[in-house]
Amino acid sequence: MAKRIDLKDVDIYYGAFHAVQNVNLTVIPRSVTAFIGPSGCGKSTVLRTLNRMHEEIAGARVEGEILLDGENIYDRGTDAVAVRRTIGMVFQMPNPFPTMSVRDNVVAGLKLQGVRDKKKLDEVCEASLRGANLWKEVKDRLDKPGGGLSGGQQQRLCIARAIAVQPDVLLMDEPCSALDPISTLAIEDLIADLKKEYTIVIVTHNMQQAARVSDQTGFFNLEATGKPGHLVEIDDTEKIFSNPTQQATEDYISGRFG
């Protein structure tokens, strides 16, 4: 069920502003693809186009093709809601529904799909929380509000919520940037586990994190402020960090700019 994503000649615009230029890449199933690059290079923008979340910003539009197992998710007949149902997302800031209990947060997506069977919901809830490495910590307070957990726990709750609907792809937009080092480690371990089942795309500011968790890494850059961002290169993580093809990548990784 883990699916492959191909981006072909993708250009992204916000109104008249050309945000990202001519991206071509392939996200491989059951692996972790990391996007790195300086601020404003468009890596988060590209990530948000993968489940059409960028449409939330007025005037945003995409040219080119984004194929999910060969089907263009921007086809006229395809509904953004259906796309998001298939491609889960974890955000920079943990965003559990504050009024819902831990349990209701996890099964929120399933309930949307009309699953009412309490036994099934409980099963999925436990499985997802175990999958997110959170079960042991919250099993005694499933009925407490999700907003009462610590930041790291909230983020794992959001991951549990995302995997509870069995998505084909999991997008993570800097999922650790608001967390402490220990929580970050917990999430990174979790990512390593999750890739056995899911296709994962992660945006990160932290190069060490990209090196630790990903199988392939794409480096985004922009020539100057106001110019569109573009993909400099994408390759096996090991190769990017040891022997990149492009000088710009090497400069960024060795900390010579950015």
């Binding site: 979340m53 889960g88 965003n95 997506g109």
Partner: peptide
């Protein structure tokens, strides 16, 4: 972030209203 959380789960417009 609450609206996005609901949308990322594949909620329709009405469901986003109900959830967020």
């Amino acid at each position: 972030f609450q609206i996005e959380a609901a949308k990322a789960l594949g909620a329709t417009r009405w469901e986003v209203i109900r959830m967020a």
